[in-house]
Write a protein that binds this DNA or RNA. Structure first.
Length: 262
DNA sequence: ATGGCTCTAACATAGAGA
């Protein structure tokens, strides 16, 4: 079974790219973030035509929004809200074989990495704290679980193109990295990317629009993550960042991440 | 210290992304 995650930065703007990606990479299940559309306007038919007839859609007008698209029937599905808000940032399904798949979109955190001065940064830290608590509740022990999505934190030095330069930039501050690593550690989940790509090697999934020629200069960040539980690790056979989508015409700033689970 | 670019909502520009 092939699972993918992709922050598409508007599902309606990215339909051609989704068709191209799904035709070539052929994921069985695809987690989307930043769909930016209310459920009534979600392009369900276009995605059904690509073979993704099973869909969990959890969106809102203009911002946020997650969806899980699948060729494989779900055995269960749901959504959750976080930090006492109605933001659409989390959906999950149960797949055949008892695999629990969670799709997350963590808040970006605004421009200033100070929770006293920036409410969005405080919200981000609170979200990561709630994630750590959520993962701890015996949710992962002995279970076949995959957590994937745009977690909006690049926790390792090699997860950004210039560690020293970006230490005070939101997404790579020590407090965010600590929060993310705590959520990972407390959950007992394994960072699938770093299972395949050693921590000493640079690895990115996002190249910003605003920095001139960020892709050509490879000024990237690893913001999109896949975590798997220990019982699934023997079945985890492949990991790939599909960087080429970033050079397609009018791309998302994020690229897909794909794993294979036997 | 700031903005760079892209998208949405709604029709000119402002907010969000990270």
């Amino acid at each position: 079974m092939r699972l993918a995650t992709w922050n598409v930065n508007s599902v309606r703007q990215r339909l051609q790219h989704l068709a191209r990606f799904c035709t070539t990479a052929a994921p069985d299940v695809l987690c989307l973030q930043e769909t930016k559309v209310r459920d009534a306007d979600f392009p369900a038919h276009d995605l059904r035509d690509l073979g993704y007839v099973h869909q969990v859609v959890h969106g809102q007008k203009g911002y946020n929004g997650v969806a899980i698209l699948s060729r494989i029937p779900f055995e269960g599905e749901g959504t959750e809200t976080w930090c006492g808000r109605d933001d659409r940032r989390h959906a999950f399904v149960r797949l055949p074989g008892g695999i629990e798949l969670h799709n997350f979109y963590v808040p970006s955190g605004g421009p200033v990495p100070d929770p006293e001065r920036n409410e969005k940064f405080a919200h981000k830290l609170q979200f990561l704290t709630e994630m750590a608590r959520w993962g701890r509740r015996g949710r992962t022990a002995g279970r076949r679980l995959v957590l994937m999505g745009d977690l909006n934190v690049a926790p390792l030095e090699t997860d950004v193109w210039n560690h020293k330069k970006l230490l005070r930039s939101v997404g790579h501050t020590p407090v965010e990295s600590e929060h993310l690593q705590r959520a990972l550690g407390d959950s007992g989940l394994i960072d699938a990317a770093r299972h395949f790509v050693p921590p000493g090697e640079h690895l990115y999934t996002w190249w910003g629009y605003r920095f001139p020629r960020s892709l050509e200069k490879n000024y990237g960040w690893r913001l999109d993550h896949v975590w798997v539980s220990a019982p699934l690790l023997p079945a985890l056979h492949g990991f790939r960042v599909v960087k080429e989508t970033r050079s397609w015409e009018r791309p998302s700033d994020h690229v897909p991440v794909v794993i294979e689970v036997a």
